[in-house]
Design a protein around this nucleic acid. Structure first.
Length: 126
DNA sequence: CGGCTGACAACTT
DNA sequence: AAAGTTGCCAGCC
């Protein structure tokens, strides 16, 4: 249902990546968000996987992709930072806390992307 | 041009 | 509750 509405909103394919990049760039220091949250903010909740792919393409950029973790708070993409420890180090340096499992404390540091900003262009068009 | 893959997540059995 | 299946978009073979 939801995804159908999105298609009607005539979202350009490449637009999805742009949205992801925009949102990631807005993640405050010391905060983290999830692939699913970003996907949802971009309008397609099920495309969480694509968000990860977007990150992979953006890993060479200046985007704070280390602030994006999976729903469990696990740093699933750490191996893509050159060093598996780099991602955690960056987050710790920014003040993000980890639990005993090495996962981010989502309750304290989860940041919800503001999708309204991005959708402003499309207004309330269904 | 068709099919497979990938830093995920939700649904189903 | 745990494991398997499906859906998404873009890039690559």
């Amino acid at each position: 249902m939801t995804f159908l509405i999105l298609r009607i909103m005539k979202i350009k394919k490449s637009d999805f990546f742009d949205r992801v990049y925009t949102l990631v760039a807005k993640i405050p220091k010391g905060k983290v968000t999830t692939y699913g949250a970003l996907a949802e903010a971009c309008g397609i909740k099920m495309a969480a996987r694509t968000v990860g792919w977007a990150m992979n393409s953006a890993k060479n950029s200046n985007l704070p992709c280390h602030r994006v973790v999976n729903r469990n708070g696990a740093l699933t993409g750490r191996m893509h930072f050159g060093s598996p420890e780099l991602m955690e180090e960056l987050l710790r340096f920014e003040g993000v806390e980890f639990d005993n499992n090495g996962n981010v404390d989502m309750k304290k540091h989860f940041w919800e992307p503001n999708k309204n900003k991005i959708k402003s262009k499309n207004k309330r068009k269904k």
